[in-house]
């Protein structure tokens, strides 16, 4: 397979965007999906229960030192940065906020780019800030595949706009087409085709 893992960042309006994308993924989706959604620091397990109730694919909170497995959607716990270690396990940190956020999308994306290099897909979704832009740029520089939600389909467009300004080769994709694109990218023969087509 060409790609290993998908990292996703979302902020304002992210719940709805994630619902649209994740509900298209099959239970045997061959990649891990790792998500930072900016949420209240006091959030309980509601988000995960809700997503599980509408998705075929399994959704869970990322556990400290947990091994990352394909076919699972991992959500960053509230109030911790989520990072990926070389041995493809998660590590958490309570270091200071980055872009006024903890978890920060940039922190996840940058550590993921270091580990997965060109085998990584990065997705920046709706949001009212700039978190995720430099992380997505790092993924681009490491040879990964980058996707930005079409700002016209975003509830808050400053996060996608900021990412577009920084990432020159990112694909700008309407929200309802992101899930199908990820599925296509998960099938290697299609992935090569898509990559050639867009370059």
């Amino acid at each position: 397979m060409r790609y290993d893992t998908i990292v996703v960042g979302a902020s304002a309006g992210g719940m709805q965007a994630l619902r649209i994308i994740l509900s298209t993924l099959p239970a045997d989706f061959p990649m891990a999906v790792i998500i930072v959604l900016h949420i209240q620091s006091t959030s309980d397990g509601f988000l995960i229960d809700y997503l599980n109730s509408i998705c075929e694919i399994t959704v869970k909170e990322a556990d400290e030192k947990e091994k990352i497995m394909p076919g699972i959607v991992y959500i960053a716990p509230a109030n911790y940065h989520l990072q990926i270690e070389e041995d493809r396990t998660f590590s958490l940190s309570i270091d200071e906020h980055v872009n006024f956020s903890r978890p920060s999308i940039d922190v996840l994306f940058e550590t993921a780019a270091d580990v997965y290099n060109e085998k990584l897909i990065g997705v920046v979704l709706t949001g009212g800030n700039r978190d995720g832009s430099s992380g997505l740029k790092r993924i681009e520089e490491s040879g990964g595949f980058t996707i930005i939600q079409d700002p016209e389909t975003a509830i808050a467009d400053s996060m996608p706009q900021s990412a577009i300004a920084q990432c020159k080769t990112a694909r700008i994709v309407r929200i309802e087409e992101i899930g199908p694109l990820l599925i296509a990218l998960s099938e290697s023969y299609k992935a090569d085709f898509i990559c050639k087509a867009v370059k």
Binding site: Q83, I84, E85, E86, S91, S93, D95, V107, T111, D114
Partner: peptide, 9 residues
Amino acid sequence: YAKSSLKRR
């Protein structure tokens, strides 16, 4: 130490 946090610091 876990490398990610250390590297950031």
